[in-house]
Structures are given as structure tokens and as C-alpha cells.
């Protein structure tokens, strides 16, 4: 008897079992792919005072300086994501926003009057907590 045939996995499972293991794994995988497929944004729109001042493709890594209401703000694109980098906002000197990459995502520095928005489906947003707005 070869060692392989004595192995626990082989002993403990029938042919149906093994098919089941494989098929269920595939099913879960495809479910995950289906649920998480989101159109990746193609470019980011930079707005100053609600007017588009810049459009950058997310495919090219770069850092662009934009004039904000309180001084210069750096917009950094890297590996399909974008963020606000090193902006001197009164309450946060030299800080940066988080990365955004999904279509429709946006990030803003309100005092700088700068808004970054990734293009793409401007409609449905899946928020995991299912809230439409937050009162604060």
C-alpha cells in the first residue's frame, strides 16, 4: 500500500466528497468575484472651488501640485489609487488623506476648497453599513 493511499485525506473522503470539496470551493470563489466586481475608476477629477481644474489618469504614477485656498496641495497618483498629500490645512498641518480608487469615491480638504473624485459609475454606492447619510 503506497503512502499516498493511506494518507488521511484520501482515506476519509469518497469520490463524491472530493468533487464536493472542489465544487464548493469554486462556488464560493465565483460568489466572491461576483459580489466584489467593481468598475475601477479610470481617472481622478480634481476640483478647486467646485470647478474642475485637473483630470489625471490613474494609470500613471505622479504627484501634481494644485493651488488650494490655503496654499499648495499635492495630489498623488500611485498604482491606480489617488490621495491628497501634504496639505497645510489649518487644523492638520502636513497631513494626508486616505487612498481612494473605487469609481465614485471622493476625498476632500474643505478648508483648502479641494475635492478629489474618481470617475466611474456615479450612482449606487455599496456602503457596508447601509447608511444614506450621517447627521453630525
Amino acid at each position: 500500500m503506497s503512502n499516498k493511499e493511506n494518507a488521511l485525506l484520501w482515506r476519509a473522503t469518497t469520490l463524491s466528497d472530493r468533487w464536493l470539496i472542489l465544487l464548493s470551493a469554486l462556488l464560493i470563489g465565483s460568489l466572491a468575484v461576483y459580489l466584489f466586481r467593481r468598475p475601477a475608476g479610470e481617472e481622478v477629477i480634481v476640483e478647486r472651488h467646485n470647478e474642475i481644474v485637473l483630470r489625471l489618469p490613474l494609470s500613471r504614477n505622479q504627484v501634481v501640485k494644485v493651488q488650494g485656498a490655503l496654499g499648495e496641495v499635492a495630489v498623488q497618483v500611485q498604482e491606480g489609487r489617488v490621495r491628497l498629500l501634504e496639505y497645510a490645512s489649518p487644523r492638520m498641518i502636513g497631513t494626508r488623506s486616505g487612498w481612494i480608487s473605487r469609481a465614485g469615491a471622493m476625498v476632500a480638504c474643505v478648508p483648502c476648497d479641494i475635492l478629489l473624485r474618481v470617475t466611474g459609475e456615479n450612482g449606487a454606492q455599496t456602503s457596508t453599513n447601509g447608511l444614506d447619510a450621517i447627521s453630525r
Partner: peptide, 12 residues
């Protein structure tokens, strides 16, 4: 649903 965002009145 259609979402529109602007920086106005000192806020989003």
C-alpha cells in the same frame, strides 16, 4: 440613486 457633491458653505 444619483449623488452630487459640492464644497459649499464651508462644508461638503
Amino acid at each position: 440613486l444619483h449623488l452630487h457633491t459640492r464644497l459649499l458653505m464651508g462644508t461638503l
